[in-house]
Every structure is written in C-alpha cells, then in structure tokens.
C-alpha cells in the first residue's frame, strides 16, 4: 500500500469518526425537539437560534461536573465500563459502505474503510462486545440497582442477538455474501432487499431496538424500577459517555439497516444521474441519499420512543424467545423453499 493510499484511508477514518460524533451530538438535540413536538411543547430554544447550540452547552456541563467514584466501587473497572461502551460504539462504522467508489483524477477512492469478507459478522461481534461496557460498569459500581440493570442488559442482549442472527441468515440466503460492500452493490437501483425480505427486516428492526437499549426495550435503565439502571452511580463525562454511546449505536444500527435492507447508497435512476453529473458528484449524491435514509431511521427510533410505553421485563423475554425466534426460523425455511423452487 502506498503512502497516498494510507493517507486517504486515514482521512476517511477521521471524517467518519467526526460525522458519527456530530450526528450523535445533534441526535440529542433532535430527540428533545421531536419529543417536544409530540408532546405539544417548544423544546430547547435558549442556547443560540432555535436552541441549536444546546448540545455544546450540554457537553460543557458534562465536562465541568464533579467526577465521583464511589468509595466501595472498583476504581479501574468503574472507568473501563464507559470507555468500553464508547469504544465499541465507534468501531462499528469501519465496515459500512458509505458510497460508491469516487474517481478523482484517475484515482479510485473507495468510500468504505475496509471491505472484509465477513463484514456482517464483524458488526455482530462489535454488538456482542458492547454489552461488556454496561456489565462491567454496572458491576463495578457496587450498587444493587446498577447490578440489576447490568444483568438485565446482558440477558436482553443475548436473547435478541439470537433472533437478529437468524433474521440475517435469511438475508444471506438471498444475497449469497457476507461482505457489506457486495450487498450494497447488489441492490443497484431499486432492487432493495426489503422487497425480498420484509419479515426479516421487521425482525431486524425490533432486535435493533433491543440491542441499542432504546424504548420500548430500555429495561436496563428503567427509572421507575431501577433509579438509573446501570449508570446510577455515574456522574460527569463518564455518564456522558454512556449516553453518547447509545446515540452512536443508534446511528450505526440505522446505517446497517439502511445498507442491508434499504439499498444503502442506491436509489432509483442513479445511473442516469451519474451519467449527467459526472463520476465525482454522482457517488456523493448516493452518499447523501444514504444519509437521508439513516436520518429517517433515527427519526423512527425517536418516534417510537415518544409513542410506545416500555415493556414489562417478562413481556420482553416472551417476545424475544416465543415470538421472534420462531418467526425468524419460519422466515428462513420459507426463504429457502422459495429459492430452491425458483432457481
């Protein structure tokens, strides 16, 4: 690999990292504005025009607050918890294809950090690692509420990972590859996978809500039962990291859903547009379409949060084990039969 290639990759990583942070930051603002809209309020409007500087004010507040490590906590693991949460949230974006290859001056620049041929499984690995941040932090706090939150997080993640994996298997039968780059390429134009796998998409969506700990599945931080859940004892930026990791996870899972099921950077009539505006602007329009899809999913996450109340814990487990897993297996069987009959 030449030095120029390394520089390009490095620049791409920095840009993606910054974009995920900015999107996560403004998701907090969007969440409050959307919540205000659903509840017929105004929402934050003091910091800057329309309250646009509110995330910066929140960030400054988080950094200025006193840092407390409880006396009976395990100090090292207490710090490792939020660090691990934010780390796993940030590394997921490495395999997502953000757009078609750019061609600038005869040089091909792929808009994907790395296209490993087990891309989907890499995402799964990162998701399954994410639960350690919550578990270690909850245990190290030495607080019963935190511990209960951590245990809930662990069992919830493991239960929903199974149906998530099964819903992906049906998708793999259709695509025949594990690489996210190839899956995005196959959905050229309007051949989006959601047309072939509608049930699989709904299963994946429900599991994504559970894996990112969003309402109606935010049992690990259920404040009516557990005070603050796993982050009860946390203060200052360590709390900020936990909250921030949730928003980055939401962004990444929206990007994964858009790539796997909603065509990624593809849109109907993309060849015509690329032929007219050239090989630099064309792929960038595709990237913009991809981000529109991502923001649509983020809005959906927030819409659900302010519409549907939280599940009870036994209802959550019943849904995961007794409804989603059988449905996912049935989906695999039906997909397999259809593919065998028509090929």
């Amino acid at each position: 690999m030449e030095l120029a290639d390394i520089a390009i990759k490095f620049g791409l990583i920095i840009i993606i990292f910054l974009i995920s942070l900015v999107v996560a930051m403004y998701s907090t603002y969007a969440e409050r504005k959307i919540a205000a809209f659903f509840q017929d309020r105004i929402g934050p409007n003091r910091a800057g025009p329309f309250g646009i500087l509110q995330p910066l004010a929140d960030g400054a507040k988080m950094f200025m607050k006193e840092e407390i490590i409880p006396t009976n906590a395990t100090p090292f693991l207490f710090i490792v918890g939020p660090s691990l949460a934010i780390l796993t949230a940030c590394i997921g974006s490495a395999v997502i294809p953000w757009g078609q290859d750019l061609v600038i001056g005869g040089k091909v620049i792929p808009l994907q950090v790395t296209d490993i041929n087990v891309g989907i499984l890499y995402i799964f690995g990162v998701v399954s690692l994410g639960v350690y941040g919550v578990m270690i932090g909850g245990w190290a706090s030495n607080n019963k509420y935190s511990l209960l939150g951590a245990i809930r997080a662990a069992s919830q993640n493991i239960s929903y990972e199974i149906s998530m994996g099964l819903s992906i298997i049906a998708l793999l039968l259709v695509t025949g590859t594990l690489s996210l780059g190839e899956i995005a390429q196959q959905q050229h134009g309007w051949h989006w996978n959601v047309i072939y796998q509608p049930v699989g998409f709904i299963l994946f969506l429900v599991c994504a809500f559970a894996e990112t700990n969003r309402t109606p599945f935010d049992l690990p931080e259920c404040e009516t039962e557990l005070v603050g859940g796993y982050h009860t004892e946390y203060s200052s930026m360590k709390l900020g990291f936990y909250l921030f990791a949730e928003y980055i996870n939401m962004f990444i899972s929206s990007a994964v859903m858009a790539t796997l099921y909603w065509g990624g950077y593809n849109y109907p009539g993309m060849d015509w547009v690329t032929a007219h505006v050239g090989p630099v602007i064309g792929p960038l329009i595709g990237t913009a379409v991809f981000f529109v899809k991502i923001f649509g999913f983020i809005f959906f996450f927030m819409w659900v949060r302010w519409t549907i109340p939280r599940f009870r814990y036994d209802q959550l487990m019943d849904l995961g084990w007794k409804i989603l897993i059988p449905l996912a297996i049935a989906n695999i069987v039906v997909t397999g039969i259809v593919i065998t009959l028509f090929n």
Binding site: N117, F124, G125, S128, A154, I158, E161
Partner: peptide, 26 residues
C-alpha cells in the same frame, strides 16, 4: 481463518463469557 476468528469472537467472547459473568454476578 477469518470465519473461525469472528465466530470465536461472537460465540465465546460475546455470548458464553457474558453468561459466565452473569452467573458470577448473581
């Protein structure tokens, strides 16, 4: 052995040891 690596990561690190930790915490 990419597949074996990632499966070891998901199954052992991501699932079985979470259950170990879960049991120990209780």
């Amino acid at each position: 052995a990419q597949f074996l690596a990632i499966v070891n990561f998901i199954v052992y690190m991501g699932a079985i040891l979470v259950l170990f930790l879960y049991t120990l915490m209780l």
